[in-house]
Design a protein around this nucleic acid. Sequence first.
DNA 1: GACCTAATACTCGATTTCGAGTAATCGAGA
DNA 2: TCTCGATTACTCGAAATCGAGTATTAGGTC
Lengths: 231, 231
Amino acid sequence: MARRKVGNPLAFAVLGCLGERPMHPYEISTMLKARGKDQSIKVNYGSLYSIVSALEKHGFIEALETVREGNRPERTVYQITAAGEAEFSDWLTELVGTPSREFHPLEAGLAYLPALPPDRAVELLEQRLATVDAEIKEMTALHDDMTAREFPRIFWIESEFRLALLEAESAYVHQLVEEIRTDSLGGAVYWRQAWKLFLEKGITPAEQLKDPVKYFGQEFAWMKAIPPEAQ
Amino acid sequence: MARRKVGNPLAFAVLGCLGERPMHPYEISTMLKARGKDQSIKVNYGSLYSIVSALEKHGFIEALETVREGNRPERTVYQITAAGEAEFSDWLTELVGTPSREFHPLEAGLAYLPALPPDRAVELLEQRLATVDAEIKEMTALHDDMTAREFPRIFWIESEFRLALLEAESAYVHQLVEEIRTDSLGGAVYWRQAWKLFLEKGITPAEQLKDPVKYFGQEFAWMKAIPPEAQ
DNA sequence: GACCTAATACTCGATTTCGAGTAATCGAGA
DNA sequence: TCTCGATTACTCGAAATCGAGTATTAGGTC
Protein backbone atom coordinates (compact mmCIF):
# COMPACT_ATOMS: atom_id res chain seq x y z
CA MET A 1 0.00 0.00 0.00
CA ALA A 2 1.08 3.54 -0.62
CA ARG A 3 2.53 5.43 2.29
CA ARG A 4 -0.69 7.45 2.48
CA LYS A 5 -4.10 6.05 1.80
CA VAL A 6 -4.88 9.16 -0.24
CA GLY A 7 -1.61 10.52 -1.50
CA ASN A 8 -2.46 13.40 -3.80
CA PRO A 9 -1.34 16.75 -2.34
CA LEU A 10 -4.79 18.07 -3.18
CA ALA A 11 -6.13 15.73 -0.48
CA PHE A 12 -3.88 17.54 1.98
CA ALA A 13 -5.39 20.85 0.93
CA VAL A 14 -8.92 19.43 1.20
CA LEU A 15 -8.26 18.29 4.76
CA GLY A 16 -6.78 21.70 5.52
CA CYS A 17 -9.93 23.42 4.27
CA LEU A 18 -12.37 21.16 6.05
CA GLY A 19 -10.35 21.64 9.23
CA GLU A 20 -11.76 25.14 9.27
CA ARG A 21 -15.43 24.34 8.69
CA PRO A 22 -17.65 21.94 6.72
CA MET A 23 -17.88 22.65 2.99
CA HIS A 24 -18.99 21.10 -0.26
CA PRO A 25 -16.37 20.19 -2.89
CA TYR A 26 -16.92 23.13 -5.16
CA GLU A 27 -16.69 25.50 -2.22
CA ILE A 28 -13.36 23.91 -1.31
CA SER A 29 -12.03 24.58 -4.77
CA THR A 30 -13.07 28.26 -4.73
CA MET A 31 -11.73 28.68 -1.22
CA LEU A 32 -8.35 27.27 -2.25
CA LYS A 33 -8.24 29.71 -5.13
CA ALA A 34 -9.32 32.65 -2.98
CA ARG A 35 -6.65 31.90 -0.39
CA GLY A 36 -4.02 31.46 -3.05
CA LYS A 37 -3.29 27.93 -1.89
CA ASP A 38 -3.49 26.87 -5.52
CA GLN A 39 -0.17 28.67 -5.89
CA SER A 40 1.59 26.31 -3.51
CA ILE A 41 -0.33 23.06 -4.01
CA LYS A 42 -1.18 21.60 -7.37
CA VAL A 43 -4.95 21.77 -7.57
CA ASN A 44 -6.48 19.77 -10.37
CA TYR A 45 -10.19 20.35 -10.28
CA GLY A 46 -10.82 17.19 -12.27
CA SER A 47 -9.31 15.17 -9.45
CA LEU A 48 -11.17 16.96 -6.67
CA TYR A 49 -14.25 14.75 -6.62
CA SER A 50 -12.29 11.50 -6.83
CA ILE A 51 -10.14 12.66 -3.97
CA VAL A 52 -13.11 13.68 -1.85
CA SER A 53 -14.63 10.21 -2.39
CA ALA A 54 -11.34 8.56 -1.53
CA LEU A 55 -11.06 10.61 1.66
CA GLU A 56 -14.61 9.66 2.57
CA LYS A 57 -13.98 5.99 1.84
CA HIS A 58 -11.04 5.99 4.23
CA GLY A 59 -12.96 7.78 6.97
CA PHE A 60 -11.00 11.04 6.90
CA ILE A 61 -14.10 13.07 6.06
CA GLU A 62 -17.83 12.34 6.16
CA ALA A 63 -20.95 13.70 4.50
CA LEU A 64 -22.73 16.09 6.83
CA GLU A 65 -25.77 16.91 4.72
CA THR A 66 -26.99 17.14 1.18
CA VAL A 67 -28.52 20.44 0.24
CA ARG A 68 -30.20 21.61 -2.92
CA GLU A 69 -30.71 25.21 -3.89
CA GLY A 70 -33.27 25.80 -6.59
CA ASN A 71 -32.72 23.54 -9.50
CA ARG A 72 -28.94 23.36 -9.03
CA PRO A 73 -27.36 19.96 -8.67
CA GLU A 74 -27.25 18.62 -5.16
CA ARG A 75 -24.28 19.60 -3.10
CA THR A 76 -22.91 17.30 -0.46
CA VAL A 77 -21.38 19.14 2.45
CA TYR A 78 -18.48 17.26 4.05
CA GLN A 79 -16.87 17.61 7.45
CA ILE A 80 -13.54 16.39 8.69
CA THR A 81 -13.41 13.48 11.17
CA ALA A 82 -11.01 12.94 14.05
CA ALA A 83 -9.07 10.50 11.86
CA GLY A 84 -8.94 13.19 9.18
CA GLU A 85 -7.54 15.74 11.61
CA ALA A 86 -4.90 13.26 12.68
CA GLU A 87 -4.03 12.52 9.07
CA PHE A 88 -3.70 16.21 8.25
CA SER A 89 -1.50 16.84 11.22
CA ASP A 90 0.69 13.85 10.42
CA TRP A 91 0.95 14.88 6.79
CA LEU A 92 1.86 18.46 7.69
CA THR A 93 4.50 17.14 10.07
CA GLU A 94 5.96 15.07 7.28
CA LEU A 95 5.87 17.85 4.69
CA VAL A 96 7.67 20.24 7.03
CA GLY A 97 10.03 17.91 8.83
CA THR A 98 11.10 15.40 6.22
CA PRO A 99 12.70 16.36 2.91
CA SER A 100 11.59 14.15 0.06
CA ARG A 101 13.57 13.61 -3.08
CA GLU A 102 12.34 16.07 -5.70
CA PHE A 103 13.09 15.72 -9.37
CA HIS A 104 13.31 19.13 -10.98
CA PRO A 105 12.68 18.92 -14.74
CA LEU A 106 15.74 21.05 -15.38
CA GLU A 107 17.81 18.40 -13.63
CA ALA A 108 16.65 15.91 -16.26
CA GLY A 109 17.41 18.42 -18.99
CA LEU A 110 20.89 19.17 -17.68
CA ALA A 111 21.64 15.45 -17.41
CA TYR A 112 21.26 15.28 -21.19
CA LEU A 113 22.58 18.73 -22.04
CA PRO A 114 25.51 17.36 -24.08
CA ALA A 115 22.87 15.99 -26.47
CA LEU A 116 22.38 19.59 -27.62
CA PRO A 117 24.99 21.65 -29.47
CA PRO A 118 26.60 24.06 -26.98
CA ASP A 119 25.33 27.18 -28.72
CA ARG A 120 21.81 25.83 -28.78
CA ALA A 121 22.08 24.98 -25.08
CA VAL A 122 23.11 28.54 -24.31
CA GLU A 123 20.22 29.87 -26.36
CA LEU A 124 17.67 27.69 -24.54
CA LEU A 125 19.10 28.43 -21.11
CA GLU A 126 18.83 32.13 -21.86
CA GLN A 127 15.26 31.67 -22.97
CA ARG A 128 14.55 30.00 -19.63
CA LEU A 129 16.28 32.81 -17.77
CA ALA A 130 14.07 35.39 -19.43
CA THR A 131 10.97 33.65 -18.07
CA VAL A 132 12.40 32.87 -14.66
CA ASP A 133 13.78 36.36 -14.12
CA ALA A 134 10.47 37.90 -15.16
CA GLU A 135 8.69 35.74 -12.62
CA ILE A 136 11.19 36.70 -9.93
CA LYS A 137 10.55 40.35 -10.64
CA GLU A 138 6.82 39.83 -10.50
CA MET A 139 6.97 37.94 -7.22
CA THR A 140 9.30 40.49 -5.69
CA ALA A 141 6.89 43.27 -6.60
CA LEU A 142 4.03 41.31 -5.06
CA HIS A 143 6.02 40.79 -1.87
CA ASP A 144 6.92 44.45 -1.69
CA ASP A 145 3.27 45.27 -2.04
CA MET A 146 2.24 42.87 0.71
CA THR A 147 4.97 44.28 2.94
CA ALA A 148 3.81 47.81 2.24
CA ARG A 149 0.27 46.84 3.17
CA GLU A 150 1.59 45.19 6.34
CA PHE A 151 0.18 41.82 5.48
CA PRO A 152 2.05 39.60 7.99
CA ARG A 153 4.80 37.50 6.43
CA ILE A 154 3.75 34.34 8.21
CA PHE A 155 0.88 34.17 5.71
CA TRP A 156 3.11 34.15 2.68
CA ILE A 157 6.29 32.35 3.65
CA GLU A 158 5.51 29.64 1.07
CA SER A 159 5.77 32.31 -1.59
CA GLU A 160 9.04 33.60 -0.13
CA PHE A 161 10.39 30.08 -0.21
CA ARG A 162 9.41 29.62 -3.82
CA LEU A 163 11.13 32.90 -4.65
CA ALA A 164 14.28 31.71 -2.90
CA LEU A 165 14.32 28.58 -5.08
CA LEU A 166 13.71 30.56 -8.26
CA GLU A 167 16.53 32.92 -7.38
CA ALA A 168 18.86 29.99 -6.83
CA GLU A 169 17.84 28.54 -10.18
CA SER A 170 18.43 31.84 -11.91
CA ALA A 171 21.83 32.36 -10.29
CA TYR A 172 22.98 28.86 -11.18
CA VAL A 173 21.82 29.04 -14.77
CA HIS A 174 23.30 32.53 -15.28
CA GLN A 175 26.64 31.22 -14.13
CA LEU A 176 26.36 28.08 -16.24
CA VAL A 177 25.58 30.07 -19.38
CA GLU A 178 28.62 32.24 -18.80
CA GLU A 179 30.85 29.21 -18.33
CA ILE A 180 29.61 27.49 -21.47
CA ARG A 181 29.98 30.66 -23.47
CA THR A 182 33.55 31.19 -22.36
CA ASP A 183 34.46 27.49 -22.54
CA SER A 184 35.45 27.65 -18.89
CA LEU A 185 33.19 24.75 -17.92
CA GLY A 186 35.20 21.56 -17.55
CA GLY A 187 34.62 19.45 -20.66
CA ALA A 188 33.05 22.26 -22.70
CA VAL A 189 35.89 22.22 -25.21
CA TYR A 190 35.32 18.52 -25.92
CA TRP A 191 31.60 19.01 -26.07
CA ARG A 192 32.08 21.64 -28.76
CA GLN A 193 34.59 19.45 -30.55
CA ALA A 194 32.29 16.42 -30.52
CA TRP A 195 29.48 18.38 -32.13
CA LYS A 196 31.85 19.80 -34.71
CA LEU A 197 33.02 16.29 -35.62
CA PHE A 198 29.44 15.15 -35.88
CA LEU A 199 28.18 18.07 -37.95
CA GLU A 200 31.15 18.25 -40.27
CA LYS A 201 32.18 14.62 -40.64
CA GLY A 202 29.09 12.79 -39.55
CA ILE A 203 30.83 10.88 -36.77
CA THR A 204 28.14 10.20 -34.17
CA PRO A 205 28.82 10.93 -30.51
CA ALA A 206 28.31 7.22 -29.77
CA GLU A 207 31.15 6.36 -32.14
CA GLN A 208 33.38 9.03 -30.67
CA LEU A 209 32.86 7.64 -27.19
CA LYS A 210 34.14 4.27 -28.34
CA ASP A 211 37.60 5.72 -28.95
CA PRO A 212 37.94 8.97 -27.01
CA VAL A 213 41.71 9.04 -27.29
CA LYS A 214 41.54 9.04 -31.08
CA TYR A 215 39.08 11.91 -31.21
CA PHE A 216 40.01 13.98 -28.20
CA GLY A 217 43.61 13.14 -27.46
CA GLN A 218 45.50 11.38 -24.72
CA GLU A 219 43.93 13.44 -21.91
CA PHE A 220 40.76 11.48 -22.41
CA ALA A 221 42.26 8.06 -21.88
CA TRP A 222 40.68 7.95 -18.40
CA MET A 223 37.26 7.80 -20.03
CA LYS A 224 37.54 4.12 -20.72
CA ALA A 225 38.25 3.51 -17.07
CA ILE A 226 34.99 5.00 -15.84
CA PRO A 227 32.11 2.62 -16.05
CA PRO A 228 30.32 3.18 -12.73
CA GLU A 229 30.02 6.95 -12.94
CA ALA A 230 27.73 9.14 -14.90
CA GLN A 231 29.43 9.32 -18.23
CA MET B 1 -4.71 14.68 -25.16
CA ALA B 2 -1.79 15.30 -22.89
CA ARG B 3 0.92 17.60 -24.12
CA ARG B 4 3.14 14.55 -24.74
CA LYS B 5 1.86 11.22 -25.94
CA VAL B 6 4.06 9.55 -23.33
CA GLY B 7 4.58 12.03 -20.57
CA ASN B 8 6.47 10.20 -17.84
CA PRO B 9 10.02 11.55 -17.43
CA LEU B 10 11.22 7.97 -17.50
CA ALA B 11 10.16 7.88 -21.15
CA PHE B 12 12.56 10.76 -21.76
CA ALA B 13 15.37 8.77 -20.19
CA VAL B 14 14.45 5.69 -22.23
CA LEU B 15 14.63 7.69 -25.45
CA GLY B 16 17.95 9.13 -24.30
CA CYS B 17 19.34 5.64 -23.73
CA LEU B 18 18.11 4.20 -26.99
CA GLY B 19 19.56 7.21 -28.78
CA GLU B 20 22.92 5.69 -28.04
CA ARG B 21 22.28 2.13 -29.19
CA PRO B 22 19.51 -0.50 -29.22
CA MET B 23 18.82 -2.14 -25.86
CA HIS B 24 16.27 -4.27 -24.08
CA PRO B 25 14.27 -2.78 -21.21
CA TYR B 26 16.20 -4.32 -18.37
CA GLU B 27 19.45 -3.17 -19.93
CA ILE B 28 18.03 0.36 -20.06
CA SER B 29 17.28 0.24 -16.37
CA THR B 30 20.78 -0.94 -15.45
CA MET B 31 22.36 1.59 -17.79
CA LEU B 32 20.38 4.42 -16.17
CA LYS B 33 21.58 3.27 -12.79
CA ALA B 34 25.18 2.90 -13.94
CA ARG B 35 25.21 6.39 -15.45
CA GLY B 36 23.62 7.86 -12.36
CA LYS B 37 20.71 9.20 -14.39
CA ASP B 38 18.42 7.72 -11.76
CA GLN B 39 19.68 10.54 -9.55
CA SER B 40 18.21 13.20 -11.81
CA ILE B 41 15.18 11.45 -13.28
CA LYS B 42 12.67 9.50 -11.27
CA VAL B 43 13.06 5.93 -12.44
CA ASN B 44 10.32 3.61 -11.33
CA TYR B 45 11.16 0.17 -12.59
CA GLY B 46 7.57 -0.92 -12.27
CA SER B 47 6.61 1.66 -14.88
CA LEU B 48 9.44 0.84 -17.24
CA TYR B 49 7.67 -1.85 -19.25
CA SER B 50 4.42 0.09 -19.55
CA ILE B 51 6.37 3.06 -20.78
CA VAL B 52 8.34 1.04 -23.30
CA SER B 53 5.04 -0.35 -24.69
CA ALA B 54 3.56 3.13 -24.84
CA LEU B 55 6.61 4.44 -26.68
CA GLU B 56 6.36 1.56 -29.12
CA LYS B 57 2.64 2.11 -29.62
CA HIS B 58 3.27 5.72 -30.59
CA GLY B 59 6.09 4.84 -32.96
CA PHE B 60 8.92 6.42 -30.98
CA ILE B 61 10.74 3.12 -30.64
CA GLU B 62 10.40 -0.24 -32.37
CA ALA B 63 11.31 -3.83 -31.59
CA LEU B 64 14.53 -4.76 -33.35
CA GLU B 65 14.75 -8.43 -32.38
CA THR B 66 13.77 -10.89 -29.72
CA VAL B 67 16.62 -12.84 -28.28
CA ARG B 68 16.71 -15.66 -25.79
CA GLU B 69 19.75 -16.69 -23.80
CA GLY B 70 19.57 -20.11 -22.22
CA ASN B 71 16.38 -20.54 -20.30
CA ARG B 72 16.07 -16.85 -19.41
CA PRO B 73 12.90 -15.04 -20.37
CA GLU B 74 12.88 -13.60 -23.84
CA ARG B 75 14.28 -10.13 -24.17
CA THR B 76 12.99 -7.74 -26.76
CA VAL B 77 15.64 -5.36 -27.99
CA TYR B 78 14.26 -1.95 -28.99
CA GLN B 79 15.72 0.77 -31.16
CA ILE B 80 14.77 4.41 -31.46
CA THR B 81 12.95 5.63 -34.59
CA ALA B 82 13.32 8.97 -36.37
CA ALA B 83 10.10 10.10 -34.69
CA GLY B 84 11.59 9.05 -31.37
CA GLU B 85 14.72 11.08 -31.98
CA ALA B 86 12.62 14.10 -32.84
CA GLU B 87 10.51 13.60 -29.71
CA PHE B 88 13.60 13.34 -27.53
CA SER B 89 15.11 16.46 -29.02
CA ASP B 90 11.87 18.38 -28.65
CA TRP B 91 11.46 17.20 -25.07
CA LEU B 92 15.02 18.14 -24.17
CA THR B 93 14.47 21.56 -25.71
CA GLU B 94 11.39 22.02 -23.57
CA LEU B 95 13.03 20.78 -20.37
CA VAL B 96 15.95 23.17 -20.79
CA GLY B 97 14.25 26.17 -22.34
CA THR B 98 10.87 26.34 -20.64
CA PRO B 99 10.42 26.52 -16.88
CA SER B 100 7.42 24.55 -15.67
CA ARG B 101 5.59 25.24 -12.46
CA GLU B 102 6.99 22.96 -9.80
CA PHE B 103 5.25 22.29 -6.51
CA HIS B 104 7.80 21.70 -3.80
CA PRO B 105 6.28 19.73 -0.90
CA LEU B 106 7.74 22.19 1.57
CA GLU B 107 5.75 24.93 -0.15
CA ALA B 108 2.58 23.03 0.73
CA GLY B 109 3.84 22.57 4.26
CA LEU B 110 4.72 26.25 4.71
CA ALA B 111 1.31 27.26 3.36
CA TYR B 112 -0.21 25.52 6.38
CA LEU B 113 2.56 26.19 8.89
CA PRO B 114 0.27 28.25 11.17
CA ALA B 115 -1.63 25.01 11.73
CA LEU B 116 1.31 23.88 13.87
CA PRO B 117 2.30 25.48 17.18
CA PRO B 118 5.32 27.75 16.56
CA ASP B 119 7.66 25.72 18.71
CA ARG B 120 6.68 22.51 16.97
CA ALA B 121 7.25 24.19 13.62
CA VAL B 122 10.75 25.20 14.66
CA GLU B 123 11.47 21.69 15.84
CA LEU B 124 10.34 20.16 12.55
CA LEU B 125 12.17 22.70 10.42
CA GLU B 126 15.33 21.92 12.33
CA GLN B 127 14.79 18.24 11.80
CA ARG B 128 14.55 18.93 8.07
CA LEU B 129 17.68 21.04 8.17
CA ALA B 130 19.65 18.22 9.76
CA THR B 131 18.81 15.97 6.79
CA VAL B 132 19.24 18.61 4.13
CA ASP B 133 22.55 19.86 5.48
CA ALA B 134 23.87 16.31 5.72
CA GLU B 135 22.95 15.76 2.09
CA ILE B 136 24.63 19.01 1.09
CA LYS B 137 27.79 17.91 2.84
CA GLU B 138 27.69 14.55 1.12
CA MET B 139 27.14 16.03 -2.32
CA THR B 140 29.86 18.60 -1.80
CA ALA B 141 32.31 15.86 -0.89
CA LEU B 142 31.30 13.92 -4.00
CA HIS B 143 31.82 16.99 -6.16
CA ASP B 144 35.21 17.65 -4.62
CA ASP B 145 36.16 14.10 -5.38
CA MET B 146 35.04 14.33 -9.01
CA THR B 147 36.94 17.60 -9.36
CA ALA B 148 40.06 16.03 -7.89
CA ARG B 149 39.80 13.18 -10.38
CA GLU B 150 39.33 15.70 -13.19
CA PHE B 151 36.01 14.31 -14.23
CA PRO B 152 34.69 17.12 -16.49
CA ARG B 153 31.96 19.19 -14.90
CA ILE B 154 29.76 19.11 -18.00
CA PHE B 155 28.93 15.52 -17.01
CA TRP B 156 27.61 16.44 -13.60
CA ILE B 157 26.04 19.87 -13.92
CA GLU B 158 22.65 18.34 -13.03
CA SER B 159 24.11 17.40 -9.67
CA GLU B 160 25.56 20.89 -9.22
CA PHE B 161 22.16 22.34 -9.95
CA ARG B 162 20.48 20.11 -7.41
CA LEU B 163 23.07 21.16 -4.85
CA ALA B 164 22.35 24.82 -5.61
CA LEU B 165 18.65 24.24 -4.91
CA LEU B 166 19.37 22.36 -1.70
CA GLU B 167 21.62 25.16 -0.53
CA ALA B 168 18.92 27.71 -1.22
CA GLU B 169 16.42 25.60 0.70
CA SER B 170 18.79 25.29 3.63
CA ALA B 171 19.58 29.01 3.70
CA TYR B 172 15.93 29.98 3.57
CA VAL B 173 14.85 27.54 6.27
CA HIS B 174 17.76 28.49 8.54
CA GLN B 175 16.70 32.11 8.32
CA LEU B 176 13.04 31.26 8.83
CA VAL B 177 13.78 29.24 11.95
CA GLU B 178 15.74 32.13 13.39
CA GLU B 179 12.91 34.55 12.67
CA ILE B 180 10.27 32.35 14.25
CA ARG B 181 12.44 31.74 17.27
CA THR B 182 13.03 35.44 17.85
CA ASP B 183 9.47 36.46 16.94
CA SER B 184 10.87 38.73 14.26
CA LEU B 185 8.75 37.17 11.52
CA GLY B 186 5.76 39.38 10.77
CA GLY B 187 2.70 37.80 12.41
CA ALA B 188 4.68 35.42 14.59
CA VAL B 189 3.47 37.10 17.77
CA TYR B 190 -0.16 36.57 16.79
CA TRP B 191 0.57 33.02 15.72
CA ARG B 192 1.97 32.30 19.18
CA GLN B 193 -0.95 34.10 20.80
CA ALA B 194 -3.53 32.15 18.79
CA TRP B 195 -2.07 28.84 19.85
CA LYS B 196 -1.92 29.98 23.46
CA LEU B 197 -5.58 30.94 23.36
CA PHE B 198 -6.43 27.59 21.86
CA LEU B 199 -4.39 25.48 24.25
CA GLU B 200 -5.32 27.37 27.40
CA LYS B 201 -8.91 28.41 26.74
CA GLY B 202 -9.92 26.06 23.99
CA ILE B 203 -10.83 28.82 21.56
CA THR B 204 -10.28 27.35 18.11
CA PRO B 205 -8.33 29.30 15.49
CA ALA B 206 -11.46 29.34 13.31
CA GLU B 207 -13.36 31.14 16.05
CA GLN B 208 -10.53 33.59 16.61
CA LEU B 209 -10.51 34.50 12.96
CA LYS B 210 -14.17 35.46 13.16
CA ASP B 211 -13.31 38.32 15.49
CA PRO B 212 -9.63 39.17 15.15
CA VAL B 213 -9.99 42.55 16.81
CA LYS B 214 -11.36 40.97 19.99
CA TYR B 215 -8.54 38.46 20.23
CA PHE B 216 -5.59 40.32 18.79
CA GLY B 217 -6.44 43.97 19.14
CA GLN B 218 -7.22 46.84 16.85
CA GLU B 219 -4.16 46.30 14.66
CA PHE B 220 -5.86 43.31 13.18
CA ALA B 221 -8.98 45.08 12.00
CA TRP B 222 -7.67 44.92 8.42
CA MET B 223 -8.08 41.14 8.50
CA LYS B 224 -11.78 41.32 7.86
CA ALA B 225 -11.12 43.38 4.78
CA ILE B 226 -8.97 40.79 3.04
CA PRO B 227 -10.94 38.16 1.24
CA PRO B 228 -9.04 37.77 -2.04
CA GLU B 229 -5.59 37.21 -0.57
CA ALA B 230 -4.05 34.17 1.02
CA GLN B 231 -5.68 33.65 4.42
C1' DG C 1 27.55 -31.01 -5.19
C1' DA C 2 24.01 -28.92 -2.43
C1' DC C 3 22.58 -24.65 -0.91
C1' DC C 4 21.86 -19.84 -0.78
C1' DT C 5 21.97 -15.16 -2.19
C1' DA C 6 22.08 -11.61 -5.48
C1' DA C 7 21.06 -10.37 -9.86
C1' DT C 8 18.24 -10.89 -13.93
C1' DA C 9 14.02 -9.97 -16.31
C1' DC C 10 9.76 -9.24 -16.29
C1' DT C 11 4.07 -9.41 -15.16
C1' DC C 12 -0.19 -7.94 -13.23
C1' DG C 13 -4.05 -5.48 -11.90
C1' DA C 14 -5.83 -2.39 -8.38
C1' DT C 15 -5.73 2.44 -7.92
C1' DT C 16 -5.15 6.95 -9.31
C1' DT C 17 -5.35 10.69 -12.23
C1' DC C 18 -7.09 14.07 -15.16
C1' DG C 19 -9.05 16.51 -18.89
C1' DA C 20 -12.85 17.13 -21.51
C1' DG C 21 -17.56 17.25 -21.37
C1' DT C 22 -22.30 18.52 -19.47
C1' DA C 23 -25.82 21.16 -17.79
C1' DA C 24 -28.00 24.42 -15.04
C1' DT C 25 -28.31 29.20 -13.39
C1' DC C 26 -27.06 34.03 -12.79
C1' DG C 27 -26.51 38.63 -14.23
C1' DA C 28 -25.25 42.37 -17.36
C1' DG C 29 -26.26 44.66 -21.31
C1' DA C 30 -28.89 45.35 -25.86
C1' DT D 1 -37.24 40.74 -22.04
C1' DC D 2 -33.99 38.23 -24.49
C1' DT D 3 -29.52 36.64 -25.07
C1' DC D 4 -24.97 35.32 -24.14
C1' DG D 5 -21.06 34.57 -21.54
C1' DA D 6 -19.44 33.58 -16.94
C1' DT D 7 -19.97 30.94 -12.99
C1' DT D 8 -21.52 27.01 -10.51
C1' DA D 9 -21.30 22.15 -9.82
C1' DC D 10 -20.26 17.90 -11.11
C1' DT D 11 -19.54 13.21 -14.20
C1' DC D 12 -17.12 9.91 -16.81
C1' DG D 13 -14.02 6.95 -18.92
C1' DA D 14 -9.54 6.42 -21.03
C1' DA D 15 -5.00 6.26 -19.76
C1' DA D 16 -1.23 6.27 -16.56
C1' DT D 17 0.99 4.61 -12.53
C1' DC D 18 3.27 1.74 -9.42
C1' DG D 19 4.51 -1.59 -6.12
C1' DA D 20 4.47 -6.13 -5.02
C1' DG D 21 5.02 -10.46 -6.80
C1' DT D 22 7.26 -14.25 -9.72
C1' DA D 23 10.49 -17.16 -11.83
C1' DT D 24 15.03 -18.14 -13.40
C1' DT D 25 19.94 -18.53 -13.10
C1' DA D 26 24.81 -17.33 -12.11
C1' DG D 27 28.14 -17.66 -8.86
C1' DG D 28 30.11 -18.18 -4.44
C1' DT D 29 30.49 -21.02 -0.15
C1' DC D 30 30.72 -24.82 2.96
